[in-house]
Design a binder for these strands. Sequence first.
RNA 1: CGGGCUGUAGCGCAGUAGGUUAGCGCACUAGUCUGGGGGACUAGGGGUCGCCAGUUCAAGUCUGGCCAGCCCGACCA
Length: 576
Amino acid sequence: MRYSKTFIPTSKEVPREATIKSHILMLRAGMIKKLSSGVYSLLPIGLKVVRKVEDIIREEMDSINSIEFSLPVLIPAELWKTSGRWYAMGPELFRLKDRNKQDFVLSPTHEEVFTDLMKDHIKSYRDLPITVYQIGLKFRDEIRPRFGVMRGKMFIMKDAYSFHQEDDWASLQKTYDDMSKAYKRIFYRCGLETIPVEADSGAMGGNKSEEFMVPSHVGEEQIVKCDSCGYVANIEKAYSPYREFKYESCGEKELVPTPDVKTIEDLSAFLKKPYEYLIKTMVYKTDGGEFVLALIRGDLNINETKLKNYLSAAEIMPAEESEIKEKLGLPPGFMSPIGVEGVKVVADESVRDIKCGVCGGNKKDYHYINVDVERDIKNIEDFIDIRMVSEGDLCPKCGSKLRIFHGIELGHIFQLGDKYTRAFSVTYLDESGKERFPIMGCYGIGVERTVAAIIEQNNDDDGIIWPITVAPYHIYLLPIKYSGKTREVSDRIYNELLSSGIDVLLDDRDLRPGVKFKDADLIGIPFRVTIGDKGLEDGIVEFYERKTRSKSKIKVDEIVTYVKKRVEDEFKKYEV
RNA sequence: CGGGCUGUAGCGCAGUAGGUUAGCGCACUAGUCUGGGGGACUAGGGGUCGCCAGUUCAAGUCUGGCCAGCCCGACCA
């Protein structure tokens, strides 16, 4: 491609809207342009990179016998009512009506459509297992779009779905493992080191799931990892045994005045008690409008995901102070389950053994002291794990200290079970002629997010440094001055490289060399060949590697062969 | 939705004790000199100062409302 014949609007200025490296560089390199919050246009080189990532995904999906489709994004609401997600999903689901007032959704994911599609096909156990996928647009009305293409309202996703015979979890596990391996290959080929992480299944339902994370300080996920035994989990899912504490027993519980002492810090200071004696009472509200008191030891924090799962709620949120006062008649800041009736109470395991503890007095400016949980708090329904793991907690497998770091979630694979096949009455006949429901798995990859993660991990002060597998071009041909002999030689090299299948960008613009050098580095093409009159006098051109910034002089006659070799060798580094 | 911040030329910004032609850098047009890491000079073009209402002789500047965007939290590929 000739630079003058394409569209790469680079920019020297850092756009004000962007704060992270990948977002800034995508804008500066002219890959994307914002249309509105969370909605971006892909410009030519952005599109080229996305296509290259998609091609890698496609190859790997095909290699595990996943079959490609392309499904609509405009979906009649009927399908979503059938699965129940029309009601369960909340405002992140884009809903619209056609002129006949029929409800539609812009699909945020395609379980419904694929399940509906497969319903007509899967009739016999002989039709199973089958795995299908597509690479297409998804729409989610995100609460807060962020970091450019990293979290948009509209994005490209590879989503795959597998169907297996009822109870044939081994078959599902096989596909799940194949996907997991394919994902590792995909990300490796994109030049990314990913970590598979145990994950919460969230709104998708199902039981087993794994996320593919790329460690990054801009990642929105927190990953818990044990460096000695290799245990890794999303913090939402991570478990750690709580630190034991020895409690001495003491007398009867007693109501004491604690004026204006609301927080755990203040309470600990006021009563001169370590956090381990304090019982935190949190009030949550479920999407069903139910209130729940959740108890945890003062030095620990509640993991809302775990609590939500325990309650089998689609959504939970901390109750508002006003709701606590009006609906429950409790004083915020001074609450406890003591004497409370008609509200569900659950406690973290860490609360069970507390003796001589402190909890709210259910009266403004009062707390109970000398609380013995077993003796004094009878209305706890269950002691469960609802703790948030924190840095330095102990590994559940080997007891070493856990580390927490941030990561970007690029892919997520789930074992779904029969939620959707039952909802859509997808049935087949087994060998004995009995009607059965297939079980499913689903498997996603965020495509633009993968591109952003690649940039996030491969850049320097001057710009992007693409792995050759996804680079918009392999070679940047840079004539110092595009005229005369230099132009002749540049054109010749350009044509020869093109005809040997190399993706080459010829900077044929009439600009000062400095500008071209800066643009070349910014766009981040892995290799560059600089052609100038000076070199040509000695019959040489300069070969430059973006990553190492190393330069070498190559004879003009040999440059095409040399480039082909370097490109080939570079590709080999990303082979699996 | 809660908390913080910002809207002035394509981009990045200045200008606000209210005052007459609204400025700078980059980019853009014409020309000259240049030409191996965002060059110099000369001459230009481009703005309903986010929108609406109000206060005032006078509003980019003050007041109110609205809209949009960014950052921190709940959501997720």
